[in-house]
Write a protein that binds this DNA or RNA. Structure first.
Lengths: 235, 235
DNA sequence: GAGAATGGAAAGTAGCACTATCCACTATCT
DNA sequence: AGATAGTGGATAGTGCTACTTTCCATTCTC
Protein backbone atom coordinates (compact mmCIF):
# COMPACT_ATOMS: atom_id res chain seq x y z
CA UNK A 1 0.00 0.00 0.00
CA UNK A 2 1.04 3.61 -0.36
CA UNK A 3 1.12 6.33 2.23
CA UNK A 4 -2.41 7.50 1.49
CA UNK A 5 -3.92 4.16 2.31
CA UNK A 6 -1.76 3.78 5.38
CA UNK A 7 -3.16 7.11 6.48
CA UNK A 8 -6.74 6.09 5.76
CA UNK A 9 -6.42 2.79 7.58
CA UNK A 10 -4.90 4.21 10.72
CA UNK A 11 -6.50 7.63 10.82
CA UNK A 12 -3.11 9.31 11.01
CA UNK A 13 -2.63 12.16 8.53
CA UNK A 14 -0.10 11.86 5.74
CA UNK A 15 2.07 14.74 6.99
CA UNK A 16 2.13 13.19 10.43
CA UNK A 17 3.25 9.86 9.02
CA UNK A 18 6.01 11.63 7.16
CA UNK A 19 6.93 13.34 10.38
CA UNK A 20 7.19 10.03 12.23
CA UNK A 21 9.39 8.65 9.48
CA UNK A 22 11.66 11.67 9.74
CA UNK A 23 11.86 11.24 13.49
CA UNK A 24 12.79 7.62 13.06
CA UNK A 25 9.67 6.21 14.73
CA UNK A 26 8.52 4.52 11.56
CA UNK A 27 10.84 2.95 9.00
CA UNK A 28 10.54 4.50 5.52
CA UNK A 29 8.55 2.67 2.88
CA UNK A 30 10.26 0.49 0.32
CA UNK A 31 11.01 2.62 -2.72
CA UNK A 32 9.99 1.21 -6.09
CA UNK A 33 10.79 4.43 -7.92
CA UNK A 34 12.57 7.55 -6.73
CA UNK A 35 9.29 8.89 -5.52
CA UNK A 36 7.09 5.93 -4.95
CA UNK A 37 7.20 3.91 -1.77
CA UNK A 38 5.28 0.93 -0.48
CA UNK A 39 4.20 0.21 3.07
CA UNK A 40 3.05 -3.11 4.50
CA UNK A 41 1.06 -4.29 7.51
CA UNK A 42 4.23 -4.08 9.53
CA UNK A 43 4.14 -0.35 9.03
CA UNK A 44 0.47 -0.24 9.91
CA UNK A 45 1.03 -2.22 13.08
CA UNK A 46 3.94 -0.07 14.05
CA UNK A 47 1.98 3.08 13.41
CA UNK A 48 -0.84 1.92 15.65
CA UNK A 49 1.68 1.13 18.33
CA UNK A 50 3.16 4.60 18.02
CA UNK A 51 -0.23 6.25 18.32
CA UNK A 52 -1.09 4.18 21.36
CA UNK A 53 2.21 4.84 23.07
CA UNK A 54 1.75 8.56 22.47
CA UNK A 55 -1.99 8.79 22.99
CA UNK A 56 -2.85 6.32 25.73
CA UNK A 57 0.62 5.77 27.11
CA UNK A 58 1.35 9.48 27.30
CA UNK A 59 4.90 9.15 25.96
CA UNK A 60 6.60 11.90 24.03
CA UNK A 61 7.70 11.34 20.47
CA UNK A 62 11.32 11.16 21.60
CA UNK A 63 10.46 8.62 24.29
CA UNK A 64 8.61 6.50 21.75
CA UNK A 65 11.69 6.58 19.55
CA UNK A 66 13.79 5.25 22.41
CA UNK A 67 11.33 2.53 23.27
CA UNK A 68 10.96 1.40 19.68
CA UNK A 69 14.71 1.35 19.15
CA UNK A 70 15.03 -0.87 22.19
CA UNK A 71 12.20 -3.12 20.99
CA UNK A 72 13.82 -3.47 17.60
CA UNK A 73 17.26 -4.29 18.89
CA UNK A 74 17.30 -8.09 19.14
CA UNK A 75 20.41 -8.03 21.30
CA UNK A 76 18.56 -6.19 24.06
CA UNK A 77 17.39 -8.48 26.84
CA UNK A 78 13.78 -8.03 27.80
CA UNK A 79 14.51 -6.44 31.13
CA UNK A 80 16.66 -3.79 29.47
CA UNK A 81 13.84 -2.87 27.15
CA UNK A 82 11.56 -2.63 30.13
CA UNK A 83 14.06 -0.35 31.76
CA UNK A 84 13.99 1.94 28.75
CA UNK A 85 10.21 1.87 28.74
CA UNK A 86 10.06 2.76 32.43
CA UNK A 87 12.46 5.63 32.18
CA UNK A 88 10.68 6.85 29.07
CA UNK A 89 7.47 7.02 31.02
CA UNK A 90 9.25 8.55 33.94
CA UNK A 91 10.83 11.16 31.71
CA UNK A 92 7.59 13.03 31.52
CA UNK A 93 6.60 12.73 35.10
CA UNK A 94 9.20 11.78 37.69
CA UNK A 95 11.53 14.60 38.35
CA UNK A 96 12.22 17.58 40.52
CA UNK A 97 9.88 18.31 43.36
CA UNK A 98 11.06 21.67 44.56
CA UNK A 99 14.83 21.83 44.33
CA UNK A 100 16.75 23.36 41.45
CA UNK A 101 14.09 25.32 39.70
CA UNK A 102 13.99 23.79 36.25
CA UNK A 103 11.58 21.05 35.51
CA UNK A 104 11.19 20.91 31.75
CA UNK A 105 13.71 23.21 30.17
CA UNK A 106 17.14 21.74 30.63
CA UNK A 107 19.14 24.39 28.78
CA UNK A 108 22.20 25.69 30.58
CA UNK A 109 21.65 25.84 34.35
CA UNK A 110 25.16 24.74 35.33
CA UNK A 111 24.22 24.00 38.95
CA UNK A 112 23.56 27.65 39.62
CA UNK A 113 22.70 27.62 43.30
CA UNK A 114 25.14 25.02 44.48
CA UNK A 115 25.38 26.46 47.95
CA UNK A 116 26.73 24.02 50.50
CA UNK A 117 23.32 23.18 51.93
CA UNK A 118 20.32 24.48 53.75
CA UNK A 119 19.57 27.54 51.70
CA UNK A 120 17.42 25.54 49.37
CA UNK A 121 14.12 23.75 49.66
CA UNK A 122 14.60 21.80 52.83
CA UNK A 123 17.85 19.91 53.17
CA UNK A 124 16.82 17.81 50.25
CA UNK A 125 19.89 15.67 49.77
CA UNK A 126 20.00 13.92 53.08
CA UNK A 127 16.28 13.44 53.03
CA UNK A 128 16.47 11.59 49.78
CA UNK A 129 19.30 9.50 51.13
CA UNK A 130 17.18 8.55 54.12
CA UNK A 131 14.29 7.63 51.86
CA UNK A 132 16.60 5.55 49.73
CA UNK A 133 17.71 3.63 52.79
CA UNK A 134 14.08 3.14 53.74
CA UNK A 135 13.29 1.82 50.29
CA UNK A 136 16.23 -0.52 50.32
CA UNK A 137 15.08 -1.81 53.66
CA UNK A 138 11.71 -2.55 52.13
CA UNK A 139 13.28 -4.45 49.28
CA UNK A 140 15.39 -6.47 51.70
CA UNK A 141 12.39 -7.18 53.92
CA UNK A 142 10.53 -8.42 50.89
CA UNK A 143 13.42 -10.50 49.71
CA UNK A 144 13.18 -8.77 46.36
CA UNK A 145 16.51 -9.15 44.74
CA UNK A 146 16.94 -6.22 42.42
CA UNK A 147 19.87 -3.95 41.72
CA UNK A 148 19.53 -0.61 43.50
CA UNK A 149 20.42 1.00 40.18
CA UNK A 150 17.33 -0.27 38.46
CA UNK A 151 15.54 2.88 37.28
CA UNK A 152 12.27 1.93 38.96
CA UNK A 153 14.05 2.11 42.30
CA UNK A 154 14.86 5.73 41.59
CA UNK A 155 11.26 6.46 40.64
CA UNK A 156 10.13 4.89 43.85
CA UNK A 157 12.57 6.93 45.90
CA UNK A 158 11.57 10.11 44.10
CA UNK A 159 7.88 9.54 44.68
CA UNK A 160 8.24 8.60 48.34
CA UNK A 161 10.57 11.53 48.96
CA UNK A 162 8.02 13.85 47.36
CA UNK A 163 5.34 12.53 49.69
CA UNK A 164 7.48 13.18 52.73
CA UNK A 165 8.38 16.63 51.56
CA UNK A 166 4.69 17.43 51.32
CA UNK A 167 4.12 16.32 54.87
CA UNK A 168 2.39 13.10 53.93
CA UNK A 169 5.12 10.82 55.17
CA UNK A 170 2.49 8.79 57.00
CA UNK A 171 1.40 7.39 53.70
CA UNK A 172 4.61 5.38 53.62
CA UNK A 173 2.92 2.96 55.97
CA UNK A 174 0.87 1.81 53.02
CA UNK A 175 3.95 0.61 51.19
CA UNK A 176 3.79 -2.89 52.61
CA UNK A 177 0.22 -3.37 51.53
CA UNK A 178 1.14 -2.06 48.09
CA UNK A 179 4.03 -4.50 47.96
CA UNK A 180 1.72 -7.38 48.78
CA UNK A 181 -0.60 -6.35 45.99
CA UNK A 182 2.12 -5.75 43.50
CA UNK A 183 3.52 -9.22 44.04
CA UNK A 184 0.26 -10.63 42.80
CA UNK A 185 0.39 -8.42 39.75
CA UNK A 186 4.00 -9.19 38.94
CA UNK A 187 3.46 -12.91 39.34
CA UNK A 188 0.58 -12.75 36.88
CA UNK A 189 2.66 -10.65 34.47
CA UNK A 190 5.58 -13.04 34.51
CA UNK A 191 3.34 -16.08 34.34
CA UNK A 192 1.73 -14.67 31.23
CA UNK A 193 5.07 -14.10 29.59
CA UNK A 194 6.33 -17.51 30.62
CA UNK A 195 3.49 -19.47 29.07
CA UNK A 196 4.03 -18.13 25.59
CA UNK A 197 7.03 -19.80 24.07
CA UNK A 198 6.84 -17.77 20.88
CA UNK A 199 9.30 -14.99 21.32
CA UNK A 200 7.84 -13.25 18.30
CA UNK A 201 6.74 -9.86 19.42
CA UNK A 202 7.18 -10.85 23.02
CA UNK A 203 9.13 -7.72 23.79
CA UNK A 204 6.37 -5.60 22.36
CA UNK A 205 3.86 -7.49 24.46
CA UNK A 206 5.87 -6.76 27.56
CA UNK A 207 6.10 -3.08 26.77
CA UNK A 208 2.43 -2.74 25.96
CA UNK A 209 1.47 -4.82 28.96
CA UNK A 210 3.57 -2.69 31.22
CA UNK A 211 2.65 0.74 29.89
CA UNK A 212 -1.03 0.12 29.40
CA UNK A 213 -1.04 -2.15 32.42
CA UNK A 214 -0.12 0.80 34.59
CA UNK A 215 -3.07 2.75 33.26
CA UNK A 216 -5.35 -0.20 33.82
CA UNK A 217 -4.13 -0.74 37.35
CA UNK A 218 -4.56 2.95 38.14
CA UNK A 219 -8.11 2.92 36.82
CA UNK A 220 -8.94 -0.25 38.70
CA UNK A 221 -7.58 1.29 41.87
CA UNK A 222 -9.90 4.26 41.54
CA UNK A 223 -12.85 1.98 41.02
CA UNK A 224 -11.90 -0.31 43.88
CA UNK A 225 -11.42 2.71 46.12
CA UNK A 226 -14.96 3.82 45.47
CA UNK A 227 -16.26 0.37 46.27
CA UNK A 228 -14.10 -0.04 49.36
CA UNK A 229 -15.18 3.36 50.55
CA UNK A 230 -18.84 2.56 50.08
CA UNK A 231 -18.36 -0.71 51.93
CA UNK A 232 -16.47 0.89 54.80
CA UNK A 233 -18.79 3.78 55.40
CA UNK A 234 -22.07 2.32 54.27
CA UNK A 235 -23.85 3.64 51.27
CA UNK B 1 7.57 36.54 54.38
CA UNK B 2 7.86 38.24 51.01
CA UNK B 3 8.08 36.72 47.62
CA UNK B 4 11.86 36.58 47.61
CA UNK B 5 11.99 34.40 50.67
CA UNK B 6 9.18 32.21 49.43
CA UNK B 7 11.27 31.71 46.33
CA UNK B 8 14.42 30.93 48.30
CA UNK B 9 12.63 28.47 50.54
CA UNK B 10 11.01 26.50 47.78
CA UNK B 11 13.54 26.88 45.00
CA UNK B 12 10.88 28.27 42.68
CA UNK B 13 11.91 31.46 40.90
CA UNK B 14 10.10 34.70 41.63
CA UNK B 15 8.75 35.10 38.08
CA UNK B 16 7.41 31.56 38.21
CA UNK B 17 5.65 32.26 41.49
CA UNK B 18 4.11 35.34 39.92
CA UNK B 19 3.07 33.22 37.00
CA UNK B 20 1.35 30.69 39.28
CA UNK B 21 -0.48 33.50 41.04
CA UNK B 22 -1.66 34.86 37.69
CA UNK B 23 -2.85 31.41 36.68
CA UNK B 24 -4.76 31.05 39.91
CA UNK B 25 -2.74 28.14 41.27
CA UNK B 26 -1.47 30.14 44.19
CA UNK B 27 -3.52 32.77 46.03
CA UNK B 28 -1.95 36.23 45.97
CA UNK B 29 -0.11 37.44 49.02
CA UNK B 30 -1.76 39.70 51.55
CA UNK B 31 -1.10 43.29 50.55
CA UNK B 32 0.15 45.62 53.25
CA UNK B 33 0.83 48.43 50.81
CA UNK B 34 -0.06 48.82 47.15
CA UNK B 35 3.13 47.04 46.23
CA UNK B 36 4.07 44.98 49.21
CA UNK B 37 2.60 41.56 49.85
CA UNK B 38 3.13 38.93 52.53
CA UNK B 39 3.06 35.19 52.14
CA UNK B 40 2.75 32.60 54.88
CA UNK B 41 3.51 28.91 55.29
CA UNK B 42 0.21 28.16 53.67
CA UNK B 43 1.60 29.64 50.49
CA UNK B 44 4.80 27.71 50.91
CA UNK B 45 2.92 24.48 51.44
CA UNK B 46 0.72 25.14 48.46
CA UNK B 47 3.67 25.98 46.29
CA UNK B 48 5.38 22.73 47.17
CA UNK B 49 2.20 20.87 46.35
CA UNK B 50 2.01 22.61 42.98
CA UNK B 51 5.60 21.72 42.14
CA UNK B 52 5.05 18.12 43.11
CA UNK B 53 1.84 17.81 41.16
CA UNK B 54 3.57 19.22 38.09
CA UNK B 55 6.97 17.63 38.55
CA UNK B 56 6.35 14.21 40.00
CA UNK B 57 2.68 13.89 39.21
CA UNK B 58 3.13 15.00 35.63
CA UNK B 59 0.08 17.26 35.62
CA UNK B 60 -0.18 20.34 33.44
CA UNK B 61 -0.59 23.74 35.00
CA UNK B 62 -4.23 23.82 33.93
CA UNK B 63 -4.84 20.40 35.46
CA UNK B 64 -3.25 21.51 38.70
CA UNK B 65 -5.56 24.51 38.72
CA UNK B 66 -8.57 22.21 38.42
CA UNK B 67 -7.36 19.89 41.13
CA UNK B 68 -6.57 22.70 43.53
CA UNK B 69 -9.90 24.35 42.92
CA UNK B 70 -11.60 21.07 43.77
CA UNK B 71 -9.43 20.63 46.87
CA UNK B 72 -10.27 24.12 48.04
CA UNK B 73 -13.99 23.81 47.54
CA UNK B 74 -15.28 22.56 50.90
CA UNK B 75 -18.61 21.61 49.38
CA UNK B 76 -16.96 19.02 47.16
CA UNK B 77 -17.25 15.50 48.49
CA UNK B 78 -13.98 13.60 48.55
CA UNK B 79 -14.92 11.27 45.75
CA UNK B 80 -15.70 14.20 43.46
CA UNK B 81 -12.26 15.64 44.07
CA UNK B 82 -10.76 12.29 43.31
CA UNK B 83 -12.72 12.24 40.09
CA UNK B 84 -11.25 15.59 39.11
CA UNK B 85 -7.79 14.38 40.02
CA UNK B 86 -8.23 11.25 37.95
CA UNK B 87 -9.44 13.04 34.88
CA UNK B 88 -6.71 15.60 35.30
CA UNK B 89 -4.16 12.85 35.19
CA UNK B 90 -5.97 11.21 32.33
CA UNK B 91 -6.08 14.49 30.44
CA UNK B 92 -2.48 14.14 29.49
CA UNK B 93 -2.47 10.45 28.81
CA UNK B 94 -5.73 8.62 28.17
CA UNK B 95 -7.18 9.53 24.88
CA UNK B 96 -7.24 8.66 21.24
CA UNK B 97 -5.41 5.55 20.11
CA UNK B 98 -5.54 5.90 16.37
CA UNK B 99 -8.81 7.56 15.47
CA UNK B 100 -9.29 11.28 15.12
CA UNK B 101 -5.77 12.54 14.83
CA UNK B 102 -5.33 15.00 17.65
CA UNK B 103 -4.19 13.82 21.00
CA UNK B 104 -3.03 16.79 23.03
CA UNK B 105 -4.98 19.77 21.84
CA UNK B 106 -8.46 19.27 23.23
CA UNK B 107 -9.89 22.63 22.30
CA UNK B 108 -13.33 22.26 20.85
CA UNK B 109 -13.67 18.58 19.93
CA UNK B 110 -17.47 18.31 19.89
CA UNK B 111 -17.19 14.70 18.68
CA UNK B 112 -15.59 15.82 15.45
CA UNK B 113 -15.21 12.68 13.40
CA UNK B 114 -18.58 11.18 14.03
CA UNK B 115 -18.59 9.24 10.81
CA UNK B 116 -21.05 6.40 11.00
CA UNK B 117 -18.30 3.80 11.08
CA UNK B 118 -15.89 1.81 9.00
CA UNK B 119 -13.93 4.40 7.10
CA UNK B 120 -11.65 4.92 10.01
CA UNK B 121 -9.05 2.88 11.80
CA UNK B 122 -10.84 -0.38 12.32
CA UNK B 123 -14.52 -0.23 13.24
CA UNK B 124 -13.58 1.44 16.46
CA UNK B 125 -16.98 2.21 17.85
CA UNK B 126 -18.42 -1.24 18.20
CA UNK B 127 -15.15 -2.53 19.53
CA UNK B 128 -15.21 -0.05 22.34
CA UNK B 129 -18.78 -0.98 23.09
CA UNK B 130 -17.81 -4.62 23.37
CA UNK B 131 -14.93 -3.74 25.67
CA UNK B 132 -17.24 -1.65 27.78
CA UNK B 133 -19.56 -4.59 28.20
CA UNK B 134 -16.60 -6.75 29.13
CA UNK B 135 -15.50 -4.23 31.72
CA UNK B 136 -18.96 -3.97 33.18
CA UNK B 137 -19.07 -7.74 33.43
CA UNK B 138 -15.85 -7.62 35.39
CA UNK B 139 -17.26 -5.04 37.77
CA UNK B 140 -20.36 -7.13 38.27
CA UNK B 141 -18.34 -10.31 38.81
CA UNK B 142 -16.32 -8.51 41.43
CA UNK B 143 -19.37 -7.08 43.08
CA UNK B 144 -17.87 -3.64 42.75
CA UNK B 145 -20.70 -1.18 42.93
CA UNK B 146 -19.64 1.84 40.99
CA UNK B 147 -21.45 4.03 38.53
CA UNK B 148 -20.48 3.24 34.94
CA UNK B 149 -20.08 6.98 34.47
CA UNK B 150 -17.21 7.20 36.90
CA UNK B 151 -14.32 8.57 34.88
CA UNK B 152 -11.98 5.76 35.88
CA UNK B 153 -14.30 3.34 34.13
CA UNK B 154 -13.75 5.23 30.91
CA UNK B 155 -10.00 5.17 31.40
CA UNK B 156 -10.17 1.45 31.94
CA UNK B 157 -12.23 0.93 28.82
CA UNK B 158 -9.89 3.12 26.79
CA UNK B 159 -6.80 1.27 27.92
CA UNK B 160 -8.26 -2.18 27.40
CA UNK B 161 -9.59 -1.21 23.99
CA UNK B 162 -6.16 0.08 23.04
CA UNK B 163 -4.63 -3.24 23.99
CA UNK B 164 -7.08 -5.14 21.85
CA UNK B 165 -6.52 -2.81 18.92
CA UNK B 166 -2.83 -3.56 19.11
CA UNK B 167 -3.47 -7.27 18.99
CA UNK B 168 -2.69 -7.86 22.62
CA UNK B 169 -6.21 -8.74 23.64
CA UNK B 170 -4.86 -11.81 25.42
CA UNK B 171 -3.55 -9.55 28.12
CA UNK B 172 -7.13 -9.02 29.23
CA UNK B 173 -6.88 -12.35 30.99
CA UNK B 174 -4.67 -10.65 33.55
CA UNK B 175 -7.49 -8.35 34.60
CA UNK B 176 -8.78 -10.65 37.31
CA UNK B 177 -5.37 -10.94 38.92
CA UNK B 178 -5.05 -7.16 38.75
CA UNK B 179 -8.44 -6.80 40.35
CA UNK B 180 -7.40 -9.06 43.21
CA UNK B 181 -4.31 -6.99 43.77
CA UNK B 182 -6.09 -3.69 43.52
CA UNK B 183 -8.60 -4.72 46.15
CA UNK B 184 -5.76 -5.01 48.62
CA UNK B 185 -4.50 -1.59 47.66
CA UNK B 186 -7.87 0.08 47.83
CA UNK B 187 -8.64 -1.48 51.19
CA UNK B 188 -5.38 -0.12 52.55
CA UNK B 189 -6.09 3.29 51.06
CA UNK B 190 -9.55 3.52 52.55
CA UNK B 191 -8.41 2.12 55.87
CA UNK B 192 -5.79 4.82 56.06
CA UNK B 193 -8.31 7.54 55.37
CA UNK B 194 -10.78 6.06 57.82
CA UNK B 195 -8.45 6.05 60.77
CA UNK B 196 -7.72 9.73 60.68
CA UNK B 197 -10.67 11.58 62.05
CA UNK B 198 -9.15 14.97 61.41
CA UNK B 199 -10.63 16.17 58.20
CA UNK B 200 -8.02 18.88 58.02
CA UNK B 201 -6.19 18.45 54.78
CA UNK B 202 -7.76 15.05 54.29
CA UNK B 203 -8.72 15.84 50.73
CA UNK B 204 -5.18 16.85 49.95
CA UNK B 205 -3.95 13.62 51.47
CA UNK B 206 -6.27 11.65 49.26
CA UNK B 207 -5.13 13.46 46.14
CA UNK B 208 -1.45 13.13 46.95
CA UNK B 209 -1.90 9.53 47.98
CA UNK B 210 -3.67 8.74 44.79
CA UNK B 211 -1.44 10.60 42.34
CA UNK B 212 1.89 9.71 43.91
CA UNK B 213 0.49 6.34 44.91
CA UNK B 214 0.08 5.48 41.26
CA UNK B 215 3.72 6.28 40.60
CA UNK B 216 4.75 4.23 43.60
CA UNK B 217 2.67 1.27 42.56
CA UNK B 218 4.05 1.43 39.03
CA UNK B 219 7.61 1.51 40.32
CA UNK B 220 6.94 -1.34 42.72
CA UNK B 221 5.46 -3.34 39.89
CA UNK B 222 8.63 -2.99 37.82
CA UNK B 223 10.72 -4.07 40.76
CA UNK B 224 8.48 -6.99 41.61
CA UNK B 225 8.49 -8.04 37.97
CA UNK B 226 12.26 -8.26 37.98
CA UNK B 227 12.18 -10.34 41.11
CA UNK B 228 9.36 -12.58 39.92
CA UNK B 229 11.15 -13.07 36.65
CA UNK B 230 14.39 -14.04 38.35
CA UNK B 231 12.50 -16.43 40.57
CA UNK B 232 10.62 -18.00 37.68
CA UNK B 233 13.54 -18.47 35.35
CA UNK B 234 16.35 -18.91 37.84
CA UNK B 235 19.07 -16.41 38.20
C1' DG C 1 18.97 58.68 50.39
C1' DA C 2 21.04 54.94 47.52
C1' DG C 3 20.62 50.35 45.99
C1' DA C 4 18.03 46.24 46.18
C1' DA C 5 13.47 44.20 46.21
C1' DT C 6 8.51 44.27 45.08
C1' DG C 7 4.01 44.10 42.57
C1' DG C 8 1.91 44.12 38.38
C1' DA C 9 1.55 43.93 33.48
C1' DA C 10 3.10 42.80 28.88
C1' DA C 11 6.02 40.92 25.67
C1' DG C 12 9.32 37.34 24.60
C1' DT C 13 11.28 32.53 24.44
C1' DA C 14 12.12 27.49 24.01
C1' DG C 15 10.43 23.10 23.22
C1' DC C 16 7.12 20.08 21.36
C1' DA C 17 4.03 17.92 18.04
C1' DC C 18 2.53 18.58 14.36
C1' DT C 19 0.83 21.10 9.82
C1' DA C 20 1.31 23.62 5.49
C1' DT C 21 3.46 24.63 1.42
C1' DC C 22 6.59 23.57 -2.40
C1' DC C 23 8.41 21.01 -5.95
C1' DA C 24 9.40 17.61 -9.31
C1' DC C 25 7.77 13.80 -10.38
C1' DT C 26 4.48 9.20 -10.94
C1' DA C 27 0.01 6.69 -11.30
C1' DT C 28 -4.17 6.32 -13.11
C1' DC C 29 -8.25 7.39 -15.44
C1' DT C 30 -10.39 8.58 -19.97
C1' DA D 1 -2.01 11.84 -24.74
C1' DG D 2 -3.76 14.85 -21.39
C1' DA D 3 -5.97 15.88 -17.03
C1' DT D 4 -6.13 14.93 -12.25
C1' DA D 5 -4.80 13.01 -8.04
C1' DG D 6 -1.21 11.21 -5.23
C1' DT D 7 3.85 10.83 -3.73
C1' DG D 8 8.48 11.56 -1.57
C1' DG D 9 11.34 14.85 0.26
C1' DA D 10 12.50 19.27 2.18
C1' DT D 11 11.73 23.55 4.57
C1' DA D 12 9.02 26.73 6.93
C1' DG D 13 5.23 27.78 9.83
C1' DT D 14 1.56 27.03 13.59
C1' DG D 15 -0.53 26.56 18.09
C1' DC D 16 0.14 25.44 22.65
C1' DT D 17 2.45 25.25 27.06
C1' DA D 18 5.36 26.72 30.71
C1' DC D 19 7.81 29.60 31.81
C1' DT D 20 11.33 34.22 31.35
C1' DT D 21 12.44 38.75 30.42
C1' DT D 22 11.80 43.34 30.60
C1' DC D 23 9.47 47.39 32.29
C1' DC D 24 8.24 50.70 35.66
C1' DA D 25 6.57 53.01 39.60
C1' DT D 26 6.92 52.29 44.16
C1' DT D 27 8.76 50.55 48.79
C1' DC D 28 11.91 48.45 51.86
C1' DT D 29 16.49 48.20 54.02
C1' DC D 30 20.77 49.68 55.22
Amino acid sequence: MRIGELSRRTGVSVPTIKFYVREGLLPPGRLSSPNQAHYDEGHERRLRLIRTLIGVGGLSVAAVADVLAAIDDPSQPVHKVLGVASTSIAGQGTDDGGAGGKARSGAGDGSGDGSGDGTDGSGNGERTAAVRAEVEALLARRGWRVSPHYPAVDSLVTAVAAMERLGHGDLVRLLDAYADAVEIIARADVEYVAERADRDGLVETVVVGTLLGDKIIAALRRIAQVDASARRFGD
